[in-house]
């Protein structure tokens, strides 16, 4: 066998392709810049813009409110960091329970199904209210009355139901032939689930899971309804005392600073996984 020659490329073709690429790039850049210039002009030339700028985008207010808002925002981050691992564990358990076929576990299967059906039917905001005010009202011995605690529990309960369905979709997306292959090697149902089905299922649902993470990061603000001074309450307290809204914009920017990297991370993970599928 002779050594195979390198790839053959026609230089004339290549230069046409490159020229088209440069032209596309220029058009994209110019149109993007133009779009934002026009948008900026429309907003800035609006009759109410000076008033809006004064109350929403005031640097002095932003600075003054920061010492109140930043620690409150850390509480939101803390709620998220505590809730998320519990949600993942609980949701995976629910999803696995729903897929069990052993007759002795039928009651667990029924409970898991009812749980996801009912909880997903209740708006998260209502669940926060109901649990935050309802459970302490029971006056049960040994249970905390902390609004922060029960607000976080409500988020965990609500999101577990959604995330469980994400996991279940992942489990069902694994082809039945994989289960057959696992069974044919003598692995029992549990082993097949653990070593063959779940690893593939979880990988597939990482992007939608991260999407739910982003959603949860924002929904930590719902705990404010119970009177907990997290970032939303902290910024409205400042806003109400100064009759400006800049503190709310600061809170929004903090959320963006948290969720945008998460969104980029989601894309990066998806891209990396599709590369891995090809080796």
């Amino acid at each position: 066998m002779t050594e195979s020659p390198g790839p053959v490329v026609d230089p004339a073709r290549l230069s046409v392709v490159r020229r088209k690429g440069r032209r596309d790039m220029t058009v994209a850049t110019v149109s993007t810049v133009l779009f934002f210039l026009v948008l900026g002009y429309v907003v800035a030339s609006a009759p109410g813009w000076p008033a809006v700028q004064a109350s929403f985008f005031n640097l002095d207010d932003a600075r003054a409110s920061w010492p109140k808002i930043w620690p409150a925002f850390l509480l939101n981050v803390k709620i998220f960091l505590i809730a998320e691992p519990i949600i993942l564990a609980l949701a995976l358990t629910i999803a696995v329970l729903r897929g069990l076929r052993a007759p002795v576990l039928a009651p667990l299967r029924v409970v898991a199904t009812i749980y996801t059906d009912i909880i997903r039917g209740i708006p998260t905001i209502l669940l926060v209210f109901l649990m935050g005010f309802g459970v302490p009202a029971l006056q049960l011995q040994g249970l905390t009355n902390s609004e922060l605690f029960w607000g976080t529990v409500a988020l965990i309960v609500s999101y577990s139901a959604y995330v469980a369905e994400v996991f279940r979709a992942g489990i069902e997306s694994v082809h039945p032939s994989q289960r057959a292959a696992a069974r044919s090697l003598g692995l029992n149902n549990g082993q097949g689930l653990r070593y063959v089905i779940l690893p593939q299922a979880v990988r597939r649902v990482v992007p939608p899971l991260l999407n739910d993470f982003i959603s949860l990061q924002k929904d930590t603000a719902l705990v404010s309804l119970l009177g907990v001074v997290e970032v939303f309450n902290a910024s409205t307290i400042y806003a109400n005392s100064t009759f400006t809204y800049t503190s709310l914009v600061v809170a929004a920017l903090l959320f963006i600073a948290l969720t945008v990297p998460m969104a980029r991370f989601t894309d990066w993970v998806s891209a990396r996984m599709s590369r891995q599928q090809q080796g």
Partner: peptide, 19 residues
């Protein structure tokens, strides 16, 4: 499972574990 430990099967579509 006891039977499957003693009888191996190979499928048309391989069914290797991709992960």
């Amino acid at each position: 499972n006891a039977v499957r430990r003693r009888v191996g099967i190979v499928f048309q579509s391989f069914n290797l574990f991709p992960h």
